[in-house]
Amino acid sequence: MRYHPALMDELNLLLHFDLDTTQQGIKVHHDADPSMVQAAARLHEKGLITQADGGYLTELGRETAEHAQAMLGLLKEPAPA
């Protein structure tokens, strides 16, 4: 299985959540990029966020977002020396 664009959109959306607090969610407005609107709907269908247009992370969503942020940290390009 490969990372396809729709999955990348979901991962990118998860990166918008602040993992330092459970009291802050996100809102994906109806006029946002259609790929982000669709990604939010899919994450909601998967039970990772509380609302189809964002909301808060569920317990599973928080775990997934933690993994997404960790993966990004491991894979990003190192700073030039």
Rank of each mutant, 00 (worst) to 15 (best):
E45H: 09
D9I: 03
G55E: 03
K27I: 15
G73P: 00
Q24W: 08
L60V: 00
A40M: 02
G47R: 07
E66K: 13
T21L: 08
P5K: 05
E59W: 06
L75A: 01
P34Y: 09
S35E: 14
S35A: 15
I26F: 02
L75D: 01
I49Y: 00
L60W: 03
H16G: 02
A32Y: 10
L13F: 02
D9F: 01
M36T: 12
E59P: 05
H67P: 00
E66T: 12
H29T: 15
Q51R: 14
Y3K: 15
L75F: 03
P78M: 11
M8E: 11
Y56S: 13
T58F: 06
D33F: 02
A81K: 11
L11T: 04
L19V: 11
D33M: 04
M71N: 05
L57R: 06
G55R: 03
R62D: 04
A40Y: 03
Q23I: 02
P78D: 11
A52F: 02
L7R: 13
E45A: 14
E59L: 06
Q69V: 12
E59N: 09
P80E: 13
N12K: 12
L19I: 12
Q23N: 08
E66Y: 05
T21S: 15
G55Q: 01
Y3G: 07
G61L: 09
P78S: 14
